[in-house]
Design a protein around this nucleic acid. Structure first.
Lengths: 231, 231
DNA sequence: CATTGCCATAAGGAATTCGTAAGATATCAT
DNA sequence: ATGATATCTTACGAATTCCTTATGGCAATG
């Protein structure tokens, strides 16, 4: 069977979370839970869920603010679940980046249908991305999550792979320090530029023939890094 | 101003169509109207609207059927507007391919917000045509952050690149000293015209064939600089 | 012809950014 | 618990980039 859909619910009411846990078919969906906005932001970064269900009345941050902060770096579908039914609330949430808005109480069937819509949307446009980047003996298979140099497989740690994969998704393009850090470590680490130096060094030792004269992983001083695919 | 958004409304009630026509800001949206499902299908094909607003209670076809037939060949966003508020209606419509479902009566502000969401979705996925400025052997790829002269890559420092990119974003136009300084060094440095001379010199050494007789980077005495693209 | 203002170029030290190594801490399976 | 692996942290020399200063050219002006 195919991977289960991972849904993150950000809501402080235990009753709602329990309700969702029992309503969502367990063999199709896997539920992640956060009780606060901060926890929700963190979990989105670390767990990379397929959908976020967001309550507006959170104890720490306002739900609108959570949506806005998510949209600074991710396009994960956000469905707001709120007791507030006022039109201005809906408009604010949708304009802040939410993709849908359901007023409590809502029917489970409708929620599931709207989740399917959101998944359809995030599915779309994903196909054309080429899952294999190849150049000069280096092969990065993004679908299989494997890297080869001259037919021998290179073993990469999770962070090393995420870093290389981020570069490989936009071959030839410069990715800034901030973009890479956000992609690999999450937005909270977007200033820790030295992580990049350490991990770039490790990557170069593994995939470059002469790590001191990198062929693939080029430094763009003061800006970021790029993966070179052409000659 | 940018092209108006084209919205097709498929609804047999003249009252609704009139209501929409008067509610949608006329300078942003252009409204196309169909009274029947068949007419709606035909108009979608011929007019290629940006959004379809679909009523379920049509005289000829059922709205659900219209949504299904549209989805056979187009991904245009479909927002259902219906008096039917039953959950099964919503689920059917959404699963038939609709992207959103609003129960009449609805607020105009909410409809507009949901239209914006739909437009955001259809925007996404289209890769923004990457802006390249090219002239006489010089090529500036603003997306990849790369500069070539006769196919050989020119390496630029962050400030050099920012300066050249600022000029390349308005090819042929004069940018004043103040504009360039603000762009590269920030508004606090808008009087340091001297920086420009130094960096222009460096740029010319890197991208001009004869730095003493600049072909691309022209000085406009007393005013600023411009990037020449034409012959 | 001297002066003034704007521009171009060269050069060197200051400041920032990079690469690398190595040790400390955390995580995980055995 | 133990060892293996991965991540985080720190430190420092090297490399690069930035800023500043100095010098000279050219054109317009009086």
């Amino acid at each position: 069977m195919t991977e289960r859909i991972r849904i993150l619910v950000i809501d402080d009411e235990a009753a709602i979370r329990r309700f969702l846990r029992s309503s969502l078919p367990e063999n199709e969906y896997f539920l992640l839970e956060a009780e606060t906005g901060e926890a929700g932001l963190r979990l989105t970064a670390t767990e990379n869920p397929d959908i976020v269900l967001l309550d507006l009345g959170l104890p720490d941050l306002d739900g609108i603010e959570v949506a806005r902060r998510l949209r600074e770096w991710t396009e994960v579908p956000i469905i707001v679940l709120s007791a507030r039914g006022r039109e201005t609330d809906k408009v604010q949430a949708l304009d802040a980046g939410a993709d849908d808005y359901l007023t409590k109480p809502f029917g489970v069937k409708e929620l599931l249908a709207r989740i399917r819509v959101a998944l359809r949307h995030s599915q779309r446009g994903k196909e054309p991305a080429n899952p294999v980047v190849e150049a000069d003996g280096l092969r990065i298979d993004l679908a299989a999550r494997q890297v080869f140099l001259d037919t021998v497989e290179i073993r990469l740690t999770p962070n090393e792979y995420k870093l290389l994969a981020a570069l490989a998704r936009s071959p030839g393009m410069v990715l800034t320090h901030k973009q890479l850090l956000t992609e690999v470590w999450g937005p909270a680490y977007s200033e820790e530029a030295h992580y990049l130096r350490v991990y770039m060094g490790q990557l170069r030792h593994k995939i470059e023939r002469d790590p001191a004269k990198p062929r693939f992983l080029r430094t763009e001083p003061g800006v970021g890094y790029r993966l070179i695919v052409e000659d």
